[in-house]
Amino acid sequence: MILQSYQIKIPAKTGNLEVIRNFLISSLQTLKFSEEELNKVLLSVDEACSNVIRHAYNFKENQIKIDLKIEKNKISIFVTDSGKGFDPSKIETPKMDEYLKNFKVGGLGILIMKKLMDEVEYDIRPGSQNKVKLVKYF
């Protein structure tokens, strides 16, 4: 059962990442999240939104929507865009030993989301609606 839900829809630009973090902080302030757990949520959503701005929209002006649903024992965050999308099965999660050894750059966003959140799911419909779902239990 959804106890509370919040939504923000704003231009997808890096200058709004701070606005998105502040939206999450104010929406989640009544929950008993530790600072560490809250930071995991902030960073994971930041990574999802940064991917949208860079990869889905290629920095072109467009909208990003974030829905937050609070239930008794979990929060679910949906990051939605209408950009070009991607095939989740073709995304390779970096092996960090090799990544660091070869001085790689970029490509860590999805790995961070997977490490910090309890569930990460995709619903990709290129050109129409792409959605990343992030879940954290508490």
């Binding site: 973090r21 960073l43 940064s50 790689k104 970029g106 961070i112």
Partner: peptide
């Protein structure tokens, strides 16, 4: 606060 974009700067110069 740091996100992967920040981490990428260090990776971009270390070599």
């Amino acid at each position: 606060y740091i996100s992967s974009a920040g981490l990428g700067v260090f990776m971009g110069f270390i070599e």
